[in-house]
Amino acid sequence: MSDAASALRAKQKPLKDKYRSDPSSAVVTLTSTGSLDATNLTCSLGAASAAKKVAGLHPAAGGPGFDASGELCSGDMLLESLVACFGVTVRAVATAMSIPLEGGSITVQGDLDFRGTLGIKEENGGSVPVGFKSIKLVLRLDVGEEYKESVDKLISMSEKYCVVLQTIKQGVSVETKLAHIGKSVPDTRKDEDIQQDGETKAERTLSNEDVIPLQ
C-alpha cells in the first residue's frame, strides 16, 4: 500500500468510526448562497472572499451569454459541479486503491431542450420536459500499463461514491419555501416565534396584501 493510500485511510478511519457510533454526526448541511440582481436576470454566487460567479440565462433562452457579459448558464454550473465532484472522487478512490494517476481529464456533456424551460409545447400539444434529457460523462485517465486492469473498478467505485452523480441519477426531494417578502431587515424574532420545523408564526399568517400576485 502506498504512503498516500495509508495516509488517506488513517485520516478517514476516525471519521468512519465516529459516523458508525453516531450516525447523526455524519449529517452535514452544505449551503450555497446567491444574491438576486435588482436590474438584470442574474444571480451572483460565491462568498465575499471568493471570486463571484454570476448566473444568467443561456443564449438559447434569451440571455446574453458568457462571452457578452460574464454570465454563466446555471446548466453549465450543474455540469461543472459534476465534473468537479467526480474528479475529486476519482482522485480519492485512486489514492485509496494505490493507483497512481499521472493525469487525465473529465468531460461532461448534457443535452438540454430549451423548449421545456421556455414553456413551448410539442407539435402535438404535449409538454416538453424541463431539464437535461441526458448527461454523458467521459473520462481520460493517464495510468501505467500495470494498473489498467484496475481502471474498471476505479470507475465503478467512483460512480458509487460521487455525491453529485448519485444525486442526479437517483433524484432528491426539493422543497421550495417563501421565507420573506420585502426589504431585508435584521432578524428580531424571539425564540418562541421560531417553530421546530423552521416556520415562523409570521410566515403562517401572511395576509393577501403581503403576497405579490402572479400575473
Score class of each variant (00 low, 15 high):
Val163Tyr: 11
Lys201Leu: 15
Ser74Met: 05
Thr33Cys: 05
Phe86Arg: 03
Phe132His: 04
Gly125Lys: 04
Thr200Gly: 00
Thr95Cys: 10
Ile135Glu: 00
Gly119Leu: 04
Ala92Met: 11
Lys160Asn: 10
Asp197Val: 02
Asp37Pro: 05
Glu159His: 10
Val88Trp: 04
Thr117Trp: 07
Glu209Tyr: 15
Gly70Tyr: 05
Leu82Gln: 01
Lys177His: 11
Lys148Pro: 02
Leu82Glu: 01
Gly63Ala: 03
Glu80Ser: 15
Lys183Pro: 04
Val93Ala: 01
Gly116Ile: 01
Ile135Val: 10
Glu145Leu: 12
Asp111Ser: 09
Pro100His: 05
Ala51Arg: 11
Val88Lys: 05
Lys18Gln: 11
Ala7Val: 12
Val164Ile: 14
Ser25Trp: 03
Asp187Asn: 13
Ala7Thr: 14
Glu122Arg: 15
Val128Thr: 13
Arg189Pro: 03
Ser184Glu: 12
Ile155Pro: 01
Glu71Ala: 11
Tyr19Glu: 06
Thr89Asn: 07
Ser25Glu: 10
Ser32Leu: 10
Gly63Leu: 02
Ser98Gln: 03
Val54Phe: 01
Gln12Thr: 14
Leu15Ser: 14
Thr107Cys: 07
Asp22Tyr: 07
Ile155Met: 08
Ser24Gly: 01
Leu41Gln: 12
Ala51Leu: 11
Glu175Asn: 11
Lys160Gln: 13
Asp37Gln: 06
Thr39Met: 07
Lys136Pro: 01
Ser173Arg: 12
Gly182Glu: 09
Thr89Ala: 08
Arg20Pro: 02
Ser173Gly: 12
Ser158Gly: 02
Gly119Lys: 04
Val88Leu: 12
Ala92Ile: 09
Gly116Ser: 05
Ile168Phe: 08
Gln166Gly: 08
Glu146Val: 15
Pro59Lys: 08
Ala51Phe: 10
Ser49Lys: 11
Val128Asp: 03
Cys73Lys: 09
Asp3Val: 14
Tyr147Gly: 01
Val174Gly: 02
Leu36Val: 13
Val172Pro: 05
Leu112Tyr: 10
Lys177Ala: 09
Arg20Gly: 07
Val143Gln: 00
Arg9Gly: 10
Lys153Val: 11
Val83Phe: 03
Val163Lys: 08
Thr31Gln: 10
Lys121Leu: 15
Leu79Phe: 01
Pro64Arg: 04
Val90Gly: 02
Met77Gln: 06
Met1Gln: 14
Lys160Arg: 13
Tyr19Trp: 14
Ser134Tyr: 01
Ala96Ser: 15
Ser184Leu: 13
Val130Asp: 12
Val138His: 14
Asp187Arg: 06
His58Gly: 02
Val93Pro: 00
Ala202Gln: 11
Val83Arg: 07
Glu175Phe: 07
Lys136Arg: 13
Pro213Gln: 05
Gly198Pro: 00
Arg189Trp: 06
Phe132Ser: 02
Cys162Phe: 01
Gly65Gln: 03
Gly34Tyr: 04
Glu192Ser: 13
Val88Pro: 01
Leu72Met: 12
Val83Asn: 07
His58Thr: 04
Lys18Asn: 12
